[in-house]
Design a protein around this nucleic acid. Structure first.
Length: 356
RNA sequence: GGGAAAGAGUC
C-alpha cells in the first residue's frame, strides 16, 4: 500500500495517468493521499469530471484533498466553481482556514486577471504570509498595474528570494534594466531563478554584452538559462552564435528546440527550421503545441503543403495534441498559398473554434 | 506518501 502510493505519486508526477489509475484501481481501500493523487492526475489532464467523481467518492477529506480539488477548478479558470468549493470547506475554529487554500484562490484570480477579486480576497486573508503577498504582487504585475505592484512590494512585511525575484522579473519585463539590476544587487540571497530573471532583463533590453557577462558569472546554469542566452543572441540577430549556444548547451528540451526553430524561421531560413524540427524528433524530444505552431509557420513561409499537412495531422494522431487556432490558421494559409482555396475554406468551416 | 508564489520558446 505504501509502495503503491509511491508508485502512484511517481506516475502522476510524470503525467502517466493510465499507469497511475491502473494501480489505484487495484487498491481496496485507497488512502486519502492516493485518492488525492488521482484528483491531481485528472486535473492535469483537464478532466474535471473524473477529478470531481473521485473527490465526491472519498469518505474522508483533509486539508490537502480540499485544496487539490480547489486547484483543479482554479487552474482551469473555473473560478465560480472554485469559489463555491472554497466556501464549502470546513474551517477549524482554532486554526482558521488553510493558507494554501487562500493561495490557490488568489492564484486563480491572478490567472483570470481579476484584480478586484484578487485584492478583495487578499485583504480577507487573516494571517498573510510571504506567499500571499507575492501572489498579490504577481496579480498586479500580470494585470499591468505596475505602480500598485511597486507600492505593494514596498509595504511587504517580509520578503524572500522568491518575492524579490518576482519584482526583479517585473522590472525586467518592462525593460527597466536599471531597476532590475538594482534589485538584483540588493538581494541578500540569489538562486538560479534570480540569475535567470536578471539574464532575461539584459536580453529583453537588447544588452547582449551585459547578458553574456552575467551568463558567464552565473554560479549555476540550467536549460532555462542556456535557452535564455540562446534566445538573446537570436533576437539580436546573431544567428551563428545562437546556434553555437544551442550546440554547446549540455541539455536541450522542447523549449530550446523551439527557440532554435523560430530563430531560423525569423531570419528567413525556414528550411533550417524544418531540419531542426526533424532533428528534434530523431532525438526523441516530444514536440508540444507551441513547437508545432512554429514548425507550421515555417512550412507556411516556404509553401510546403504536404509537409505542413503532415505535421498538422500528426499533432493529434501521434502526439495527442488538439490543434489550436494558430495551427488551423497556419494550415489554412498553407492551403491557400497552394491554391487549394476550397480545402482551406473547408478546414476553417470545420474547425472547433469560432472564426474571426 | 498527496496541495500554494518568482526565470526561457510561438503570437
Amino acid at each position: 500500500p505504501a509502495a503503491a502510493m509511491a508508485l502512484i505519486a511517481a506516475y502522476v508526477r510524470k503525467g502517466h495517468l493510465h499507469e497511475a489509475k491502473h494501480i489505484f484501481d487495484k487498491l481496496e481501500q485507497p488512502s486519502i493521499a492516493a485518492s488525492t493523487s488521482m484528483i491531481t492526475a485528472y486535473a492535469q489532464e483537464g478532466d474535471l469530471e473524473r477529478a470531481k467523481q473521485i473527490f465526491d467518492g472519498m469518505e474522508l477529506l483533509d486539508e490537502i484533498s480540499w485544496t487539490v480539488m480547489l486547484q483543479a477548478y482554479a487552474q482551469r479558470g473555473k473560478m465560480r466553481e472554485a469559489k463555491r468549493l472554497f466556501d464549502s470547506i470546513p474551517v477549524p475554529v482554532d486554526k482558521g482556514r488553510d493558507l494554501v487554500a487562500w493561495s490557490v484562490m488568489l492564484l486563480g484570480y491572478t490567472q483570470a486577471r481579476d484584480v478586484p477579486r484578487a485584492r478583495d480576497l487578499f485583504q480577507t486573508i487573516p494571517r498573510r504570509n510571504v506567499v500571499s503577498w507575492t501572489l498579490m504582487l504577481q496579480a498586479y504585475v500580470e494585470a499591468g498595474e505596475f505602480s500598485n505592484a511597486i507600492e505593494l512590494f514596498n509595504s511587504m512585511p517580509e520578503r524572500n528570494v522568491v518575492s524579490m525575484t518576482a519584482m526583479l522579473a517585473a522590472h525586467a519585463g518592462r525593460q527597466d534594466l536599471e531597476a532590475a539590476k538594482f534589485m538584483f544587487d540588493s538581494m541578500p540571497e540569489k538562486n538560479l531563478v534570480s540569475w535567470s530573471a536578471m539574464l532575461q532583463g539584459y536580453a529583453t533590453s537588447g544588452d547582449i554584452r551585459g547578458a553574456k557577462i552575467l551568463f558567464e558569472e552565473m554560479p549555476w546554469k540550467d536549460t532555462v538559462a542556456w535557452t535564455t542566452m540562446l534566445q538573446a543572441y537570436a533576437q539580436a540577430g546573431h544567428l551563428r552564435t545562437s546556434l553555437f549556444v544551442f550546440e554547446t548547451m549540455p541539455e536541450r528540451n522542447v523549449v530550446s528546440w523551439t527557440a532554435m526553430i523560430s530563430a531560423f524561421a525569423h531570419s528567413g531560413n525556414q528550411m533550417d527550421s524544418i531540419q531542426i524540427f526533424h532533428a528534434m524528433n530523431l532525438e526523441g524530444v516530444k514536440p508540444d503545441d507551441i513547437c508545432f505552431a512554429s514548425a507550421l509557420l515555417a512550412c507556411n513561409h516556404v509553401g510546403l503543403l504536404y509537409r505542413g499537412h503532415g505535421y498538422f495531422t500528426s499533432m493529434r494522431r501521434d502526439h495527442g495534441i488538439a490543434p489550436g487556432r494558430e495551427h488551423y490558421f497556419s494550415m489554412a494559409d498553407i492551403l491557400c498559398r497552394a491554391g487549394r482555396l476550397e480545402s482551406a475554406q473547408e478546414l476553417i468551416r470545420t474547425m472547433p473554434f469560432v472564426p474571426e
